[in-house]
Design a protein around this nucleic acid. Sequence first.
RNA 1: GCGCCUGUAGCUCAGGUGGAUAGAGCAUCGGCCUUCUAAGCCGGUGGCCGCUGGUUCGAGUCCAGCCAGGCGCGCCA
Length: 565
Amino acid sequence: MNPFDRLIAPLLEAFPGLAAEDIAFTAAPKLELGDVAIPMFILAKKLGTPPPKLAADAAQRAAFGPEVRLAAAAGPYLNLKLDRAVFAREIVEDILGAGAGYGSNAAGRGKRALIEHTSINPNASPHVGRARCAMIGDSISRLFRFEEYEVDVHYYVNDMGRQIGLLVLIADELKDLTFDQVLDAYVRANARAEQDPEFAAQGYALLLKMEEGDPAAQAKFRAVTDLCLNGQLAVLARIGAAYDVFDRESKYVKDARLDQVQAALRARDALFVDEDQRLVVDLSKLGHAAEEGRYFVLMRANGSSMYGYRDLAYTIDKLSSGADVNLIALGEDHKLYFQQLAMILDAAGYAAPEPVYYSYILLKEGKMSTRQGNVVLLSDFLDEAIRLASERVAEQCKDLSAEEQRVIAERVAIAAVRFAVLRVGASKNVTFDMDAALSFEGDTGPYVQYSCARINSILRKYPGALPTAPGAAFPVESDAEWGLLTKLASFPDVVASCLRQRTCAPIAVYVLDIARAFTAFYHECPVLTAGTPELTQARLLVCRVSLQTLTNALGILGIEAPERM
RNA sequence: GCGCCUGUAGCUCAGGUGGAUAGAGCAUCGGCCUUCUAAGCCGGUGGCCGCUGGUUCGAGUCCAGCCAGGCGCGCCA
């Protein structure tokens, strides 16, 4: 419910032929121009009138109620000065009424969403590049839940394949492999396979045995992949990423539905066995124009399956769950692969999931490469963030217990890390800057948390019971209050836009905007010493609705604000 | 080479469906703590919005061609 909706009817009456959805509200560049602005461009096109003339006409002819104090045209805009108290009261009542649900448009009520993300190969501790996927996927999941979708978060466990086979071989030799040793073992296994064809062949043989159901081989794969998965999940849990369903790739080796896919491909003459006895899809038969990526191998000559073959079965499995939305967060390196997969699925009569791509995080020194050791591990990054936050908390919150300080430091650290990653659009190549990402000042998660802590401080210091609704008098007249409240009112639109675009980055930008607007209010408008009880009551409510909106928005980003910091 | 993504202040990034003088933060310079938390606030400096054309009353935004960076084009996953 837009608080400015009541301004629409007078315009429709004055100009028959316009529809309510043609009329948009925006903030004027300067508050002196008006409290709200209505651009005339779309309306003008519809009526065949030049925008400036229409703005002038509208200022003359629209019969607004007494809540509009002044309607003035300024170029192609109609600017209105309002009885702010009337609108402010509605905004406040709206937010208080909706509470933890404020901002949700309930777009997903009665619908289900299946979201797959992270799905890291079980081979090493996740680095920040992989963690980007986890944070993006996790926040999108939270966004969908906020919009009342029933969300199932899936994690595809790549518990087989050549590389895991090699890792199992090495693990066998080393005995008692721990999670911390896996990365090193994995690197060595791959290096050895390149130099030693015998070793590589052993890996393939082991893989085939495992696929064919050999219990001993399966147990070995399971032990190694469980070790890795549990270690990875423990790290991911630290940043708040959680999963509902774990789908093991090995479950999809033999899947009857793949026979149907093969039949569909044969019917299109798109499936053949090549000269090396591999089972291959010729995507050119399915409409793939380029020579690059034309062939998609399903099975090796020895009969063991390729990743894509199993992924087809898994994806069909996900699709048959009947979810209304089926999303998958993928690295940009998977774009061609996923297009190929989608083409095969299409041929078999399935609509592929919607991909959400994220780009790589680069280091100043160049690309992150596990092999060369120039990676920033998520766990190291978090440890450093917590260390820095702890130093700060120890200075700021001397009167709190060690345990309370620890909780605050952890929340601040997670906020810094998640915010730094989430505020950037997913398709952007970002250069990772440890210092910038761990800054607690400026456009950061901790800055937003800080404004929450200030609000809490005010509410805590108010001696009486906090107001729960605007009183008879509701004086909200200052520019700072007005600017803050109108920004708060736009939250549902921000959420709706994010849902449409499958992104949470604008929420991070929005939350900064609110924090800045609140800080302006904080400096200009004393609450506890406002002068009159009515003003204090009104400003306490502004504090409450600001905190509510910030809390809800931060929740989508997976960030919690401490009461003190 | 071909395909997809990216290019906005010294640095890191915002700027749906074209619209009011292009916005933040960091850095830098100058001011603010007897006053609800200075993890803060106020002000200054700093922009051929990669380049060149085009469409439009109007382009950072749309189109084409270049240039630069990223990713991909495997008996890897």
